[in-house]
Amino acid sequence: MTEFIQLVLAGTANGCIYGLLALALVLIYRSTHIINFGQGEMAMFSTYICWSFLNAGMGYWVAVPLTLILAFAAGIAVQRILIRPVQNAPELTIVIVTLGLYLFFNSLALWIYSGVPKPFPLPTGIRQASWQVGDIFIIPYHLFIFAVLITLMAVLYVLFQRTKLGLGLRAAAAQPASSRLVGINVNWMLALGWGIAAAAGALAGILSAPVVQLEPNFMATILIFSFASATLGGFDSPPGAVVGGIAIGNIVALGGRYIEFIGTQLDIVLALVVIVAVLLIRPAGLFGRQVVQRV
């Protein structure tokens, strides 16, 4: 039992990170109907930028917000420069362009930072040692991740549901043509969506870097788990993405332990099973709206 709880705690912490990246995927999918295969690598590159800041002697609490702002700007730039020209192109073209993003950031990171893993510190103020409650060890950093996620969700909720900008963002995503007619600058709204997504992704990268090692491929696995999370939660539901992420985190943690065949090597297979199963049984995911496919 103790072990089970321990696994759930760890799984939930990882799941929060998957949920964050899934949130980024979903924000982009909702507004532009693109699955951004480059999302993980953009996050990875942002994490390296953050590492560079830290390495240059900047404090954690300065470096991280600065990175997020840069990631936000970069997300906007990517949308405006690379994605917008192909926005209405066939799906294959868009998939290819996002794969191009994947390759580009991956190889750029390898080029600049080499493949040698970099140590990434815990946030200042968060202690390494764990608390013991009964038989259970609680790692402060896990709680920190959880708190960050909850805070971010609250901020996004207020932004999307309670502000005029949020109304515009949602409208532009749902009905671009009508939005244009009421004077919403749809192109900018979509770009802002990409910016927010890029910042959320960067946060996922920064949060996971202390746990797994920072190297150019470290987001690849996390991306697959996030795909699974977004698929499970529904590609058009931001809360679904987070719930899906936590679910996937737990499935992976528990499955790896209790299903002998899976072990630690095949945990990615679990994620893939989830993806395929969800797509077959309930393509819109748990929280997505079932929409009859228009052809």
Binding site: L279, G288, Q290, V291, Q293, R294
Partner: peptide
């Protein structure tokens, strides 16, 4: 508007 992977 093209949600979902297949018909819902």
């Amino acid at each position: 508007r093209q949600d979902g992977g297949g018909s819902g």
